[in-house]
Design a protein around this nucleic acid. Structure first.
Length: 1139
RNA sequence: AGUCCUGUAGCUCAGUUGGUUAGAGCACUACACUGAUAAUGUAGGGGUCCGCAGUUCAAAUCUGCGCAGGACUACCA
């Protein structure tokens, strides 16, 4: 028995999901898709590693669908597409998870739990959810090789990182320096920005703030400030952290900000002063009402402070002006106490002049460095340079400082009074909030010295340590850096060659990020991560960066020989053996690497720098580390990637580290094409979170709907880079609208194909010999193939999906199938019918191929169901269909569009006068605009008449004399020619009479006079249409007008009855459970109004209902006879019997 | 605070190089169709194209200034 096209009872996409998964698993389809492309060009893809210590969410389905779509598409285009899965296993979230589950804090590490045990716990914990991830990956249909993933904690992975770090080191791109970082004195540790962004870290606090007076040194550059001035001149600068004032070494002004000089008095001492501040902020310090007060009448202590604005100047004229050190306890070593430009200075608060303490502010440090200003640093007893505050949060004690330094730079008498004071009371266990703070005492001192202009409490937002709940300090800390700034230009150049989707992320967010690049701070003071492979002697004179395990082994041997180490920690490791068994003998994590002490050339012991490196280095290194490059795959590294995709939040994360490392190590981009997708929000547009309970469980959605509607919805609802407001009803809509329609279309096809024994192997009817409507849908199909390829090629899956969906629902189902139903049922299996099957079959198969990347499950089933006997290949191994340009016929597409439009207009007219479509009508009339239009219409005439059940189509031409024409200006044509005259021209055209229009048409041009100018209007300047036919029922849409003859003759009425009868009989057949092919005997009870109609259309009725025997009977009382109403007041009885 | 994205019907989204009547689907209402039938079609209502200003003969579209939502980066006197 020959194969039949499977028929289904209903569409259960969830069940299809499961059965197709089983099929893939049984056949090893994914492996086959790689094997089948062996020797073909590669399409290189990098998988960004997710962290497996969290549950996968619906947003992961989004990112992975994009990746999967592109990879499957490229496979179908003949490329071999390897996809290696990966796991990101290091980093803070892992540590936090472990600490939570073990119930410990960082302080316990090394005490209650050893570092080795802790790291062991991390190693185990990080893979906690891998099962879930693998499960989701499989169910959603994401094809990626999970059998051989790369894992960032693997020793071989780390070894590649070490090699890379050494390469950077050799190029001089790895260095140790300091930056200002958030630091918690209470916890004694630096904090990452990640930690500062924990909820609740930023709190409003009330601090003492101080506006200090910095006395201007009178010299050549500052002379203009002393012009016409009877007092000393001061800069005013505001700070919320007065304890940083002793570390002040500069003042910053905004170069384009306007400043003023104000003559007034110090409110605390009553001394006459002249102060400088931003013009916009005068109002914040002086009451406008006091501007007129007499300066001479002022008495110290008066509430009302008189002032007088002397003059104004720009910030740039102030730069370079010197001032006296405000609190001269300690001298800086270098240039200081100068006004410098600061790009970030605003006039929103303070005075518009910013106090700069380079040791306590990141911006401060940056602008000071640019201007060549020295920071205020101290030398401790160990010879290390320190800020004025030590790591416990207090001013350094003099006894802790280097003697020579104290002698040279410190005013011991003045400083002693404050040495040892904590900068925040929270750091000193003996103090409470009630006690006077250092800020207060300093401010009081400044008041007395005529150096404070205003002191007040101020509420502001300040970060706190999430562990100790105490305020953080911004503090200079030693760190290792990658000198990314050295390669900035090259990175920008290479970035310009990358195809970003959307483009703005590449040029905007990423491009701007590169422009403002700072060096990459690699250091992290943690336990679970890739250790920095740098060993140093204690005095810093000797240093070695290790680039491989083998090199480490050799150095260890030296160290053992020199007696620096007792024994070799990894004696069994065999260099050159890259098996996992060999690498399992070692551990490159802490604490093991910390225990290794190396020896310098001159015999000094060297200890490892305790830092771990940023986990982003791990992920950015994946192109090389996943292949254990260069130790393995030295000459076959797949690089750079043709394509990557990840969330837009990775711009400064993975995208940057990939790009930076690719540029610095290989002078190459790391990826050529990239899609950065937006977020998945809930349906109200809020961020999804477990806490709010609005997170969508991907497993449940897939179980309920299957993956295909979910994937389709995600790809087509919005562009991937726009945020997606995830709404389950949208998934449901996709299921009904797209998959439901496609399924129905296939069901229709298989039902009749099986009845007729269509196999799909018959010789093709040449397209040229197929009917107009077949050639039309084939034309559209080829246009679709072209458009979909273009969309995929441009990394725009949304456009591809929308185009496919539109074709299926609108053109294929709603028009092609609906108009062709009669060709499929009944009648002989002739060439016309064969053409219909072949056309529909080809459309369905092509859709399956085009849509397979997005909806891999259903398209797999559909494609296989459509294959002729003996062919069972997967759609995912098949090649994409080629577009056949010669089959695209735009003229045909145009006239079919006319047919659709006219049909819909006629149906609308019928509705208006309540005449059913089953009732035939005699005539429609269409005004003909030009010869081409007539020809186009003639070709689709039968389709229209059939669809709207009308007998004839009449073309109305000039000669018939019934046309009423109207004329409209064509702005697109007129605009460029006459621009300014447009309005009067439009009015003139509107005023044209029927005669004018006729004259215009016959002459081919028309002259109008507008504003005294004579103009020649040409045919393309206007649109002439006929939108009314007097005395007829008329519809008008755009250029097309249709009139309908609604008189119903006796003939027409009888034919209408016949069709009504057929309809009732068909219903009865169906209700009686008859098969589509069953023949019947039919009885109709006589009825005066009907008999003639039945006799006249006997053949028609019989053939439509498969009635081999039709009898008109006087009384019909067969069992199963029913009464039917054909129109109101017209009833009869019919009966059928299966033969 | 900076950079970027988004803002069009009740909801989700289209809207070409600016062209004068701004579209589709869903939802809603009414009607029709009926051997694709747990389907389908037709029609209808529904718009301050976020606001203001500008450029232009002409702006949803271009420019500027705002507003709202979101993301990232930073956290500053």
């Amino acid at each position: 028995m020959s194969k039949k096209f499977p028929e289904y009872k209903g569409l259960d996409l969830s069940a299809i999901n499961k059965s197709v998964l089983k099929l893939w698993e049984g056949e090893g389809t994914f492996e086959q898709s790689l094997k089948a492309r062996e020797g073909q060009p590669s399409f290189i893809f990098f998988e960004g590693p997710p962290s497996a210590n969290g549950m996968p969410g619906i947003h992961h389905v989004m990112a992975r669908t994009i990746k999967d779509v592109i990879c499957r598409y490229k496979t179908q285009k003949g490329f071999q597409v390897h996809r290696k899965a990966g796991w990101d296993t290091h980093g803070l979230p892992v540590e936090l998870g472990v600490e939570k589950s073990l119930g410990i804090t960082k302080e316990d590490i090394g005490k209650r739990i050893s570092v080795a045990e802790y790291n062991q716990a991390c190693r185990k914990d990080v893979m906690k959810y891998t099962d879930m991830w693998e499960d989701l990956t499989e169910k959603m249909g994401y094809w990626v090789d999970m059998e051989h993933p790369y894992i960032t904690y693997d020793n071989r992975y780390i070894e590649t990182l070490w090699w890379m770090l050494k390469e950077l080191y050799k190029k001089g791109l790895l260095y140790k320096g300091y930056t200002i970082q958030p630091f918690s004195p209470a916890a004694g540790t630096g904090l990452s920005t990640h930690e500062l962004n924990q909820p609740g870290c930023y709190k409003d606090v009330k601090d003492t703030t101080c506006t200090a007076q910095f006395k201007v040194v009178r010299d050549e550059t500052s002379d203009f400030l002393y012009a016409d001035c009877d007092t000393e001149v001061y800069f005013l600068a505001w700070t919320t952290t007065p304890w940083t004032l002793p570390s002040n070494t500069a003042l910053a002004v905004g170069p384009s900000v306007t400043y003023v000089r104000v003559r007034t008095f110090n409110p605390y001492t009553g001394e006459p002063v002249t102060v400088v501040l931003a013009k916009d902020l005068v109002g914040a310090y002086f009451n406008e009402k006091n501007a007129d007060l007499d300066l001479d009448a002022y008495q110290a202590g008066d509430k009302k402070l008189p002032f007088k604005v002397l003059d104004e100047f720009s910030g740039s004229t102030l730069t370079g002006v010197r001032y006296e050190q405000l609190i001269p306890w300690i001298q800086p070593d270098g240039d200081a106490f100068r006004v410098i430009p600061g790009d970030y200075v605003t006039t929103e608060d303070g005075t518009g002049i910013v106090h700069i303490a380079p040791t306590f502010g990141a911006d401060d440090d940056r602008v000071a460095k640019v201007a060549g200003i020295a920071p205020l640093v101290l030398m401790d007893r160990e010879g290390k340079r320190q800020p004025m505050v030590d790591r416990s949060g207090k001013f350094f004690l003099i006894k802790d400082l280097d003697d020579a330094f104290v002698k040279q730079f410190v005013d011991v008498k003045a400083y002693s009074e404050f040495a040892g004071r904590f900068v925040k009371n929270a750091y000193d266990a003996s103090l409470s909030d009630e006690d006077a703070t250092l800020d207060v005492d300093l401010s009081v001192m400044l008041k007395k010295e005529n150096k404070a202009f205003r002191v007040e409490k101020h509420v502001h937002n300040y970060p706190h340590c999430w562990r100790t709940d105490k305020p953080v300090l911004y503090y200079p800390l030693d760190s290792w850096f990658v000198k990314t700034t050295a390669m900035r230009e090259r990175m920008m150049e290479l970035n310009n060659t990358i195809n970003w989707k959307p483009e703005s992320t590449g040029t905007g967010r990423f491009g701007k990020w590169l422009e403002n690049l700072v060096d990459w701070n690699l250091s992290r003071s943690r336990y679970w991560g890739t250790p920095l492979p740098v060993w140093r002697s204690e005095d810093g004179s000797a240093e070695v960066c290790i680039g491989s395990v083998e090199e480490l082994m050799q150095e260890v041997d030296k160290a053992v020989k020199a007696g620096v180490m007792d024994k070799h920690p990894f004696p069994d490791f065999k260099p050159g053996d890259f098996s996992s068994a060999n690498y399992d003998k070692i551990d490159l994590h802490r604490p093991f690497v910390d225990d290794i002490i190396l020896v310098s050339e001159d015999g000094k012991p060297m200890y490892r720098e305790l830092d771990l490196i940023d986990v982003w280095f791990d992920s950015g290194a994946m192109p090389y580390a996943q292949m254990h490059y260069p130790f393995e795959n030295k000459d076959s590294l797949p690089f750079p990637a043709d394509f990557i995709a990840e969330g837009v939040d990775q711009t400064r994360g993975w995208f940057f580290t990939l790009h930076a490392l690719g540029t610095m190590l290989f002078d190459s981009v790391a990826f050529k094409n990239i899609i950065s997708n937006g977020l998945v929000l809930d349906k109200k547009g809020n961020k999804m979170s477990k806490r709010l309970g609005n997170a969508v469980d991907p497993f449940k959605v897939i179980e309920d709907y299957g993956s295909d509607p979910l994937r389709w919805y995600m790809m087509t609802n919005a562009q991937p880079w726009d945020n997606l407001k995830f709404d389950l009803s949208g998934v449901d809509e996709v299921k009904r609208k797209f998959f439901g329609t496609l399924y129905n279309t296939y069901s229709f096809f298989s039902l009749y194909a099986n009845v007729d024994g269509f196999k799909g192997t018959e010789a093709q009817v040449p397209v040229a010999e197929r009917p107009e409507i077949d050639r039309w849908v084939i034309s559209l199909l080829n246009t679709l193939v072209k458009d979909v390829h273009a969309a995929y090629d441009q990394y725009e899956p949304t456009r591809a999906g929308r185009a496919i969906q539109d074709f299926v629902t609108e053109n294929l189902s709603n028009w092609y199938v609906r108009l062709n139903r009669k060709r499929f049922w009944g009648g002989a299996f002739n060439q016309d019918k064969l053409a219909a099957y072949q056309t529909l079959h080809q459309c369905l198969e092509t859709v399956a191929l085009l849509a397979a990347p997005i909806a891999p499950f259903y398209m797999e089933q559909l494609y296989r169901d459509l294959q002729p006997e003996g062919q069972t290949a997967s759609v995912h191994l098949a090649l994409m269909p080629e577009v056949v340009e010669t089959l695209i016929d735009k003229g045909l597409e145009e006239r079919m569009a006319y047919a659709q439009q006219i049909s819909s207009m006629v149906l609308a007219l019928r509705r208006k006068v309540s005449i059913k479509v089953r009732q035939p009508l005699q005539k429609i009339m269409v005004p003909i605009l030009d010869a081409r239009f007539e020809a186009q219409l003639e070709a689709v005439k039968d389709l229209i008449l059939n669809e709207v059940n009308v007998k004839e189509l009449e073309y109305l031409k000039e000669s018939t004399g019934v046309l009423v024409k109207t004329i409209k200006p064509n702005f697109k044509s007129l605009g460029p020619k006459y621009s300014k005259l447009m309005k009067p021209i439009a009015a003139a055209i509107g005023a044209m009479t029927a005669e004018d229009i006729a004259a215009f048409e016959s002459a081919g041009s028309f002259s109008v006079e507008v504003n005294g100018e004579k103009l020649q209007l040409l045919p393309e300047d206007v649109e002439i249409i006929s939108e009314d036919i007097p005395g007829w029922l008329v519809a008008n849409e755009g250029r097309i007008t249709v009139a309908l003859d609604i008189t119903i003759s006796e003939d027409l009425r009888q034919e209408g009855y016949a069709r009504e009868l057929v309809n009732r009989i068909q219903n009865l057949r169906k209700d009686s459970g008859l098969d589509v092919t069953d023949k019947i005997r039919l009885q109709i009870q006589r009825h005066a109004a009907l008999d003639a109609a039945v006799e006249k259309h006997r053949t028609y009725i019989s053939s439509q209902t498969l009635a081999d025997d039709l009898q008109l009977v006087d009384t019909c009382n067969e069992s199963g006879a029913i009464s039917v109403e054909l129109e109101s007041e017209l009833e009869t009885i019919i009966a059928i019997e299966k033969l």
